[in-house]
Simulated assay, not measured.
Amino acid sequence: MAYKKFPALCAGGCALFLALIAIAGGSMVILPGESYRGALPPLEREELQLRDRLRQHVVQLSGTIGERNVAHYDSLVKSAEYVKAELRKAGLSVSEQPFAADGKVVANLEVEMKGTTEAQEIVVIGAHYDSAPGTPGADDNASGVAALLELARQCTNLRPARTVRFVAFVNEEAPYFQGEEMGSVVYAQRAKERREKIVGMVSLETIGYYADQPGSQRYPAPLSHFYPDTGNFIGFVSNWNSQSLLRQAIGAFRRGGVKFPSEGVAAPAGIPGIGWSDQWSFWQQGYPALMVTDTAPFRYPHYHEPSDTPDRIDYGRMTRVVQGLGKVVEELAGK
């Protein structure tokens, strides 16, 4: 997850904005189903196996390989090779979208599962595999890539009505964030040029850190007035134009039987954090898109730090999130 510095909002501005939200933004808080509350049951055998695979991916990307970006080009290439190898190990065919960034060849990596009855409609599940400068990027974003790999593996035998693409994006982090050499920008622009009908994009972004202490969760103004102050949930985040996708996705997560807290927000893209990942690139092309996140800098003390290491991740809770996301993919795909 990348971000830009933002100005403080004055108290009067917040009050006005809250009033506008109350009038026009009910979608910020009114979502299908209810967030799970209560103790989390122990992981069962298959869940433990999934947990171990998720840990393996995070350790390999952020522990063994470490910082991976154009400035650490060899490591970026190694991480791409790891992603491709894991997808191929699952029996999936990987295509590449290469392009130049600062004179070096980088690539988005894609697996496509062709739809049966609605093949022209496309669902994209994405995560960026680069890390920010100076950090090994366990939560940001080896956690998202690990989820991407396991969701793709789970969907190997899926026969979706819609075409489903799993995409590992390069160059989400600075200095490429929201620039022409950001991997998802290149991808979304190409999709638009080809007149592809992307009906939903889900960005898997920092999904591995959770905390049970009151006050462990913060928000940009004015969201703190609406959401819990304990960082034990997974968040679904979209702009207003993608609120239908948000409702469908979080509804599928909550109906799917996975016992894990979830919160959702559809809000103006200008609120800090709302557009801080690859979903932003799809919004620029008019496609509906959302982000699934642990909220990164609003919760995680090691965000964009050298201490964002594999031992910080809660693999048990991350396992439950990935299980729930499997239900989201199935519903969006029209299984």
Rank of each mutant, 00 (worst) to 15 (best):
A2T: 10
K5W: 08
F6M: 06
L9M: 14
C10L: 13
G13H: 10
L16P: 01
A19T: 13
L20Q: 13
I23M: 12
I23Y: 11
G26T: 11
G33H: 05
S35G: 09
L48P: 00
Q49Y: 10
R53Y: 11
L54E: 01
L54C: 10
R55T: 05
G63I: 09
G66A: 10
E67C: 08
V70E: 13
V70G: 09
A71K: 15
S79Q: 02
K84I: 15
E86Y: 03
E86T: 14
A90G: 03
G91H: 03
L92A: 06
S93M: 08
S95D: 11
P98E: 13
F99A: 02
A100F: 15
K104G: 09
K104T: 10
V105E: 15
V111F: 00
K114Q: 14
G115S: 04
G115T: 00
T116I: 10
T116D: 04
A119I: 07
Q120A: 15
V124W: 00
H128Q: 11
S131Q: 05
S131C: 07
A132W: 01
G134A: 11
G134F: 12
G137N: 04
D140T: 07
D140E: 08
N141C: 07
A146E: 01
A146C: 08
L148K: 03
E150V: 06
L151Y: 00
A152W: 00
C155P: 01
T156C: 02
N157M: 08
L158S: 00
R159Q: 14
A161K: 03
V164W: 00
V167M: 04
A168D: 01
N171W: 02
E172H: 12
S184M: 11
V186K: 12
V186M: 08
V186P: 00
Q189S: 14
R190C: 01
K192V: 12
E193L: 15
I198V: 15
V199E: 02
L204N: 02
L204V: 07
T206W: 04
I207K: 02
Y209I: 10
Y210E: 03
Q213I: 11
Q213V: 14
A221W: 13
A221C: 12
P228C: 09
D229N: 15
G231E: 10
F233R: 13
F236E: 01
Q243V: 11
L245R: 02
Q248V: 10
G251Q: 07
G256F: 01
K259I: 02
F260H: 12
F260N: 02
A267G: 06
P268G: 09
P268Q: 07
I271Q: 10
I274R: 09
G275I: 04
D278L: 09
S281C: 13
F282P: 00
Q284W: 10
A289Y: 01
L290I: 12
M291G: 01
T295Q: 07
A296L: 09
P297Y: 09
R299S: 06
Y300H: 08
Y300R: 06
H304M: 08
D308T: 07
D314R: 06
G316H: 05
G316Q: 14
R317V: 04
V321Q: 04
V322E: 03
V322I: 09
G324F: 04
L325R: 03
L325C: 11
G334R: 02
